[in-house]
């Protein structure tokens, strides 16, 4: 399972790079996106290891902590990359 997870992680990382290669034009875009991806992977790993090890409370706490922070981070990253709020800006320009 660990090997499969690692494979999926790597594939997801490559997919993210391909998805963002035209949108992310600044160095801090890449830092935000890559660190978000690492954070999500850590969160999935934390929850998976704890739940398979019968540490259910730790899994719940981890899901909440990593989940909420990942959502907030993703929103900031999306705003920075222009995925959120882009249409409104374009309409204002027209």
């Amino acid at each position: 399972m660990g090997t499969l997870y690692l494979l999926l992680c790597g594939a997801g990382f490559v997919g993210m790079l391909l998805f963002l290669r035209k949108t992310a034009t600044r160095w801090y875009h890449w830092i935000l996106a890559i660190s978000l991806y690492i954070w999500i992977c850590l969160g999935i790993s934390f929850v998976y290891i704890n739940s398979t090890g019968y540490h259910h409370q730790a899994a719940r706490v981890g899901a909440m902590f990593f989940g909420i922070t990942a959502i907030a981070w993703a929103f900031i990253t999306a705003r920075t990359l222009g995925f959120v709020g882009k249409k409104k800006n374009m309409q204002e320009q027209i």
Partner: peptide
């Protein structure tokens, strides 16, 4: 303490 380590009882086992 927040994660509850050391106080769990794995009823699955």
């Amino acid at each position: 303490d927040i994660c509850g380590y050391g106080s769990e009882v794995a009823t699955e086992l």
